[in-house]
Design a protein around this nucleic acid. Sequence first.
DNA 1: ACCGGATGCTAATACGGATTAGCAACCCCG
DNA 2: CGGGGTTGCTAATCCGTATTAGCATCCGGT
Lengths: 358, 358
Amino acid sequence: MTTSQTSPRRITQRRIAELAGVSQATVSLVLNEKADATSRIPEETRDRVLQVLKETGYVADPAARRLAGLGNKIFGVFTYEPAFPTASQDFYAPLLSGIEGTAEELGCDLLLFTSAPVVDGTRRLLHENNRLRLADGCLLLGVEMDPDELARLVADGFPFVAVGRRDVDGVPYVAIDYTTGASELVGTAWELGHRRYAYVHVDSTGESVVDRRDGVIGELERRGGPAAASGLLAIPADGPDGATLQAAWQQVRASGCTVLVVETHETARRLRAMAEASGVAVPDALSMIVLGDAARPNGDANDFTRLSPPRTALASAATTLLARMLDPHDDVPEVELRQTLACPVMAGATLVAPEDAA
Amino acid sequence: MTTSQTSPRRITQRRIAELAGVSQATVSLVLNEKADATSRIPEETRDRVLQVLKETGYVADPAARRLAGLGNKIFGVFTYEPAFPTASQDFYAPLLSGIEGTAEELGCDLLLFTSAPVVDGTRRLLHENNRLRLADGCLLLGVEMDPDELARLVADGFPFVAVGRRDVDGVPYVAIDYTTGASELVGTAWELGHRRYAYVHVDSTGESVVDRRDGVIGELERRGGPAAASGLLAIPADGPDGATLQAAWQQVRASGCTVLVVETHETARRLRAMAEASGVAVPDALSMIVLGDAARPNGDANDFTRLSPPRTALASAATTLLARMLDPHDDVPEVELRQTLACPVMAGATLVAPEDAA
DNA sequence: ACCGGATGCTAATACGGATTAGCAACCCCG
DNA sequence: CGGGGTTGCTAATCCGTATTAGCATCCGGT
């Protein structure tokens, strides 16, 4: 794929120089407002050059600028999960929204690495001929990221920020404090009298998933000792497989739990439907707690008692952090390279005291 | 903003050349598999170079490749309306989805021109220091586009495709045949006996808007002569301004029309609510026709009789066309530079024969 | 032994812009 | 009138890659 730039003569600094009767270097100096002691350009010359620049509508070639060692205000965006079998679309939408909004404010363009090939079920950023270096820095999204790739980026000194906590040395990130949020929710349930919990969770080693699990289990152990956490029923349920979810629901029902903890809104919605279909009223017979929010605020009324992770703000903060890392005038202190945002709890209507409460 | 690439020594072809004991040119030749008569590289040398390439994990600098005149498989994406006050988000989501999916298949990256400044209410692609030239070609989205900018792009010979019909010479586009779709809908209504129409339309000169209007008015004139079209009540209603829409509804009601033609799903939803609130049953007392689809397939049940523009397919086709234009082996015939997709009609449940039908 | 042609590679240059060293002209001062 | 400083600019080089011209070397043929 070659550029079919057959246009007779692209406008370059050299061309501008010819028209203005100066050298290419002078044009560059005028463009970059270099008024060092070494290179002073008198008003007259400067105006003449500016005049020609205006007439021709000159625009610098970003590739050349980049090659010459300048930044070009482009942030790369990479998503580890393939973003467009529409399934994950709802997941990424608020993140991309936050990134785009902030990039617009910063006057940056975004380079989406849609070309990354899928290997072993996850996409590879560092494939041959990746266009990473075209960007000044990069934002990484995804539930799970390849630690080797992260380490390589760190080693190469390539500026990037992960959206979500990452357990790899030297990786800058902005995260959501799921642990505390999950703890709060479980703690509230405990205080209402709930003692028997079922927990339908996503089977993933992604840091955010682990954080939520830690929050749930940690809080139960704190409240009731190790025994309480054993009242916990862990059921992997990682997708929209109807049969799997039905089986999970049967287990939940058989467990005699009074409250059901679920990872995602979508799964919660379906489990609630199964519960109602089985004649189990929510929340009267069974309370429900959801550790995530609905993808869309509107949609079907979302009255789950739940966490509401600030995902747009998360992505926005990551973008801002990356911009700061790239700003040579801003020496970002080490501690700010790892940020954590609080995860608010939404009261909802699916958590009430258990029927058999003391 | 400079690149803080202080990494000791980036891996370049020159470095590879040193390690393999050959010249930089040889490395380039091996990389690009040039086996011309002029430059033959024996197996042995080639293997040695490939070995070093593999060991070092060399990746070509895309900026340098670009500067040297190669394409780099990057498609620019530009939206004329600011995409992220979330309002237009629903509008762009299916389009971006189509673009992303196709780009992924093609192995292309996407450069989102989020940095474009807003001037006079619309964004400018060709601002100073735009990064357009970094892309091989560009996709343009938006209800209204600046004809001057389009003409400039054509004149410069920059490869691009507009998503939606454009009335500017030499502009390649992929469009949706709104005119025929709107005609069909209005024709169906006519055959059911409707003679008095109200038409609440967006006040815009965007080609797609004009096409829909032409379809509605054209069909009425064909069916009932110029007189029929005078039975048409045009009411500008360009936004979510509640008062304006209320006024529009009052006019609609006073007009004694039997069928209401509306541009967008969102407006239709609100007008239906106003109708029901006024005791006017839809569709029994008032039929409704909508010239667009809901942003999200799910959401509130969408049973409007309506057009369902294939927007994802539209964007996908535009992306494919751009790829073909950039392929030097593919000499796209002139006629294929302007494509039109059919716009299917969804039967829905809001169009019935008028109460006073003969 | 010498010539023509292939083989295997490299030197040189282009791409467009940023930057630095430094040239030429002028001015001021002694 | 000559030396040192300033002013106004330019030539040259670099960034990393692609591409072309062409230099050695060897081989086969006569």
